[in-house]
């Protein structure tokens, strides 16, 4: 059986759904970050598969820039998370609800 573009796109959709489910379900901010990483990776697979299908390198280029964005997102996000943990001793999402400053 031949593996075509559709296979990769279906896989990408499944992985994206898993990530989106995690984002909706999780209450711990660190685990929420993990779920966003899953979503970014799922999109990367889709981009590279489409690029491969058309014999084009643009998909891979976009995947590179997504990886760069994900790396900087983690650096800033973890910094903010550490600050929040120092202040509130918790990284639960519910602790973000009150706006007492």
């Amino acid at each position: 059986m031949d593996i075509g573009l559709t296979h990769y796109l279906v896989l990408s959709t499944i992985l994206f759904s898993i990530g989106l489910y995690g984002v909706l379900k999780r209450k711990n901010l660190l685990l929420l970050f993990f779920s966003t990483e899953i979503m970014l990776n799922a999109v990367n697979i889709g981009l590279v598969a489409v690029g491969n299908h058309y014999g084009d390198l643009t998909g891979q280029m976009f995947a590179f820039f997504i990886i760069a964005v994900a790396a900087s997102e983690v650096a800033v996000g973890l910094g903010l998370l550490v600050l929040w943990y120092r202040k509130h001793q918790t990284i639960d999402l519910d602790s973000l609800q009150d706006m007492k400053g």
Binding site: F65, A68, V69, A71, S72, E73, A75, V76, L78, G79, L80, V82, L83
Partner: peptide, 20 residues
């Protein structure tokens, strides 16, 4: 875009250091 990504990573690095 490559150079912009480099600047973005630099900004993120400095932000991470300053925040933590």
């Amino acid at each position: 875009p490559f150079e912009l990504a480099a600047i973005m990573l630099l900004v993120a690095m400095i932000a991470g250091i300053v925040l933590v």
